[in-house]
Structures are given as structure tokens and as C-alpha cells.
Design a protein around this nucleic acid. Structure first.
Length: 258
DNA sequence: ATGGCTGATCGAATCAGA
């Protein structure tokens, strides 16, 4: 796979966002787009509309909440929905496919709601389960990309007001540590490498005029194994997609490599 | 008073997001 443009975008309902999604694909023409928070079942997914823009779709949906997909201009092979580790996938948050020899994951990590809650425990367990999956089924020497909404701000540089968010489920040491164990399996945070100074965000609250004030967090990440990282030429957030009528609260994160 | 929006499920009010 040469000269690849890959993006990840939490669309916050693909049915509400379809017009924007089609227009974005026409403008940017990524080779691969990882989507999260589809909020639709497999049956409700707009396969035909996206095929009309030139993309095949691998989808793992569910009713009302969650849902992930991978869109690609090339063939999606060996699609795997969920963890495939013998335990049931009660929430549709992980899908992967092989595209031109690269294993690509789209992940939607649970938010966790409140530190110490049942959902918070589920978030930590979900990240541990992801690390287990990587160790069991994959080789860090292979070309692998893990992209998605991780619901973790890795560093204080990824938060507009670190003190205000320090105790939140997005920032507490337990979640940062749980994601760090996934990364340590063999990934590089590609975006962070291009923006070491921080202050670049991918999510802004719908409330409190957070976007015009640039009160955001970087929650959407692209991780790549070492073989890949050396080939990366750019990484950026498409802030324009957060503007205008009915945006998602997340903007697409785009990574390119040669 | 720690809110303020948006979407899904519904057919009003609640859950969830981050």
C-alpha cells in the first residue's frame, strides 16, 4: 500500500451526518476512513450512498448506540467484528479489516461516564481486552494501524484546561495507564509525533461555545506499528469539519504516509 | 445552580455522550 491517506472520524450518528460525510469524502478522497458512533444497525447503514461516492464499507453496528465501520476505496479483506475472543461483544466498538496488506482497526473506546462507576470499570476492562487481543493475534512487526475515538487524553498537552479535566474519565491516571499498555504493545501515536507541542484537539463540547473558544481535547488517535511510522508524511485535524450546520462534536483526524 | 447541546428512542421524557 503506497501513498496512503487514512482518517478517523467519530460522526455521532451516520444517519444525521450522511450529507456531510459524502461531501467530506468527495473533497478529501481518503483511501481509508475509520468511523465511530454510527448509532445505527447494520441494516440501517447507508452502504449504497457510500458506494456511490466510491467506498466499500465493513460495518459492525447496533441499535441506538455505538457502532463502528471502515470505509475503503480498495478491497476490505478478512473483516473481523468485535474481539473474537470467545466472550460476547455486547457493544459494537471494534472492527478490523485488511486493506492492501495492512490490518486496519476502527475502535470506539467506552467513555466511562464517571470515575469509579460500573461503566468506568468496563472502560478499563475494554482497553485491557484490546491489549490482550493484540498480544494474542497480531505481530508488532507487521503493518498495523489502530485508529479511532479512544476517549482518553494521553497528555495534559491534549487538554485545553488540564486542571479542569484532571479528575475526569478522559484524563485520570488509570485510563491513561490502560491506554499506555495498548500503545506499549508496539504502537506509535503518529499524530503526537507531528505535533509534540500539543494544543491540537479533535473534540469540542457542543455546549458553552467550546469550539469557537477552542476549548477542546484530543481524543481521536491514530496508532501505527513501527514499520509504518517512519513513512508518515503528515498528520492533522480537519477543524473545518467542526464548523457550519449540524457538525459532529468530533473533527476528522487525517494521517498520510508514502 | 457546576447547567448551557445533540441524537436515539419515541411519540414525553430519559439515556448517553465527553
Amino acid at each position: 500500500m503506497n501513498a496512503v491517506k487514512l482518517a478517523t472520524w467519530n460522526v455521532n450518528s451516520i444517519r444525521s451526518r450522511l450529507g456531510r460525510l459524502e461531501a467530506w469524502l468527495r473533497r478529501h478522497r481518503p483511501d481509508v476512513l475509520c468511523l465511530q458512533e454510527l448509532k445505527c444497525t447494520d441494516e440501517q447503514f447507508p452502504y449504497e450512498a457510500l458506494a456511490g461516492v466510491g467506498y466499500q464499507s465493513a460495518v459492525f453496528g447496533q441499535k441506538a448506540y455505538n457502532g463502528v465501520a471502515i470505509l475503503a476505496r480498495q478491497e476490505l479483506r478478512d473483516v473481523r467484528r468485535g474481539f473474537g475472543d470467545g466472550s460476547p461483544d455486547t457493544e459494537a466498538r471494534l472492527i478490523s479489516a485488511e486493506i492492501e496488506g495492512v490490518r486496519v482497526f476502527s475502535a470506539y473506546v467506552p467513555n466511562g461516564q464517571v470515575v469509579g462507576s460500573e461503566k468506568f470499570t468496563y472502560k478499563l476492562a475494554w482497553l485491557a481486552r484490546l491489549a490482550d487481543l493484540l498480544r494474542r493475534d497480531f505481530d508488532p512487526a507487521a503493518p498495523i494501524v489502530l485508529a479511532g475515538d479512544f476517549n482518553v487524553a494521553v497528555s495534559d498537552r491534549d487538554v485545553y484546561d488540564p486542571n479542569a479535566w484532571a479528575e475526569s474519565v478522559l484524563c485520570v491516571p488509570e485510563v491513561r495507564g490502560a491506554l499506555e499498555l495498548v500503545r506499549q504493545w508496539g504502537f506509535v501515536d503518529v499524530f503526537a509525533r507531528f505535533h509534540p507541542e500539543g494544543g491540537v484537539y479533535s473534540w469540542w463540547d457542543y455546549r458553552r461555545l467550546a469550539f469557537p473558544r477552542n476549548q477542546g481535547l484530543r481524543l481521536d488517535h491514530v496508532y501505527a506499528t513501527a514499520a509504518f511510522t517512519e513513512r508518515c508524511t503528515s498528520a492533522y485535524v480537519d477543524r473545518d469539519e467542526r464548523k457550519g450546520e449540524k457538525p459532529s462534536d468530533h473533527a476528522p483526524v487525517v494521517v498520510e504516509w508514502t
